Simulated scan of single mutants.
Amino acid sequence: MPPRPRRTTDPGLLLPGQVAAEIREGLPAVAEEVVAAIIDEVPSYTDAFNGPMGARIRGAVEVALGGFLSLASSRHGTDPRTPTAPAVDGAYQLGRGEARGGRSTEALLSAYRIGARVSWQRMAQGAVRAGLDAETLASFAALVFAYIDELSAASVAGHTDELATTGRVRQRRLERLAHHLVARSDVTEETVRAAVDRADWPEPRTLTAVVVPESQVRPLLAVVPPTTLQAADPPGLDEGVLLLVPDVHGRARARLLRALPERGAVAGPARPWLSVRASYERVLRARALGLGHDTEQHLTRLVLTADPEALADLRAQALAPLAALRPGTIDKLADTLRLWLLLQGRRDDVAAALFVHPQTVRYRMGQVREAYGDTLDDPEVVLALTLALGAPP
């Protein structure tokens, strides 16, 4: 049931009729700008507002603001901060619809904040053109934001009520689907597809695994598609929440990555949706290694550390010619050889990286060549050394 409009005290403002008329003429353009700003700033509304839905929202914005102007210019003692019952009911039903569409309250409130900002900017311009004085304009601003706050509260109430009924059941089904997708091989494709049907979830082309701290889940949900799946306790994850984000491959990935660094989240690669476990496993490995928010920026490190025991054996085998030397000498020669290989033998660059004199590099490489002999000219030996020394021991 939608909340009743709240009664507030007398606002002490009566908007002159000519001012209200001036503002009302610009409402269609205001509604267009509101929808355009929401599409631009809240990604989960991009597709929803294209087509008939966008036209309905533009109409709703225009009607809501028109209703406010009628209240603000009425001489019958009505409070413009208190929307009429039909307006509150419409906002309440909007909230229920947003919950059914899978969009979060964060996305909904973001849309309201943007709508309030754009509406006030444009309505204020109209008021100034109509000659409204500064003191009255300030009072007008307070009323506009109070009115929109009442509507947003009604929408949140509708969203909450919807989730408390059918939405809660569907959420459990979506969570079960997320667990199936990242489970071990004992979950069959038939089981996954049956879970998709039960949850009424649209199959995407790809899914991207993102692990995010629990405290940052709600803000991040406002910038990812509304069909994103959540798994609060997936296999292998000790803390944090797993999000499976649909269709953020290609250029769409950049928007996701921009939202991650400040939230302590890590994103894996996009994979065909049935193979998203591979993306999740890469995220787990990147987090274990303490790497950054984008696993695809650390592929070399991930490859080199994929089999730690094999890497340790390769390092021991590759450095065997130095085994007769003292441990401290081995470490210095290994560091020098590593940079010599990575910097393609540029002695001055190697010296700068090691903070030593170029002659020291020349001396150390002389020791290395004495130990390895002609094998340093063998491509297979060079490859083994590059791999063995490419990551810290």
Score class of each variant (00 low, 15 high):
241 V>I: 07
281 E>R: 15
352 A>R: 15
53 M>L: 03
188 T>W: 07
345 G>N: 07
374 D>K: 13
33 E>V: 00
350 V>M: 09
178 A>Y: 00
312 A>D: 15
252 A>S: 11
196 V>A: 06
14 L>K: 11
30 V>T: 13
257 L>W: 09
237 L>Y: 07
41 E>H: 13
145 F>D: 07
290 G>W: 08
109 L>C: 08
270 A>Q: 05
29 A>Q: 13
16 P>S: 11
312 A>K: 14
131 G>R: 02
44 S>G: 08
196 V>Y: 00
103 R>D: 08
373 G>T: 07
166 T>N: 07
85 A>Q: 13
248 V>H: 02
256 L>S: 09
61 V>D: 09
268 G>W: 10
290 G>F: 07
267 A>R: 08
80 P>F: 03
268 G>Y: 13
113 R>E: 07
334 A>G: 02
332 K>P: 00
109 L>E: 08
293 H>P: 12
371 A>D: 00
219 P>L: 02
154 A>V: 03
117 R>N: 12
265 A>M: 13
313 D>S: 14
154 A>D: 08
359 Q>G: 14
313 D>A: 15
374 D>F: 04
33 E>C: 03
193 R>H: 11
160 T>Q: 14
362 R>T: 13
115 G>E: 00
357 H>F: 05
43 P>C: 09
294 D>H: 09
186 D>P: 01
110 S>I: 00
165 T>I: 03
35 V>K: 09
363 Y>M: 10
353 A>R: 13
218 R>L: 08
34 V>I: 15
140 F>Y: 11
213 P>F: 01
167 G>P: 05
99 A>N: 04
205 R>C: 06
217 V>G: 01
254 A>Y: 15
132 L>N: 02
375 T>D: 12
360 T>D: 12
114 I>G: 02
207 L>K: 06
317 Q>I: 04
177 L>T: 08
30 V>C: 05
271 R>E: 15
99 A>P: 03
49 F>R: 03
317 Q>Y: 14
238 D>A: 14
1 M>V: 12
15 L>G: 06
277 R>Y: 03
44 S>E: 08
277 R>A: 05
161 D>T: 04
314 L>S: 11
282 R>E: 15
389 L>R: 09
190 E>I: 05
155 S>D: 01
322 L>R: 04
83 P>M: 01
276 V>R: 01
154 A>W: 00
286 A>Y: 04
101 G>K: 09
102 G>Y: 13
91 A>R: 03
164 A>P: 06
107 A>R: 03
317 Q>V: 07
122 R>D: 02
204 P>V: 00
322 L>D: 03
150 E>I: 00
114 I>F: 04
21 A>Q: 13
193 R>L: 14
12 G>L: 07
197 D>A: 14
140 F>R: 05
168 R>M: 11
103 R>N: 10
255 R>D: 13
116 A>T: 01
47 D>P: 00
302 L>C: 11
28 P>A: 08
293 H>W: 10
16 P>A: 08
72 A>P: 09
241 V>N: 01
277 R>S: 05
2 P>N: 10
248 V>P: 02
118 V>W: 01
113 R>L: 05
222 A>R: 04
66 G>D: 00
35 V>Y: 01
140 F>I: 04
268 G>F: 10
363 Y>R: 15
181 L>H: 03
38 I>Y: 01
198 R>M: 08
191 T>V: 11
5 P>W: 09
173 R>M: 14
282 R>F: 01
128 V>C: 04
242 L>F: 10
73 S>G: 02
185 S>Q: 12
29 A>S: 09
52 P>F: 11
340 W>E: 12
128 V>S: 06
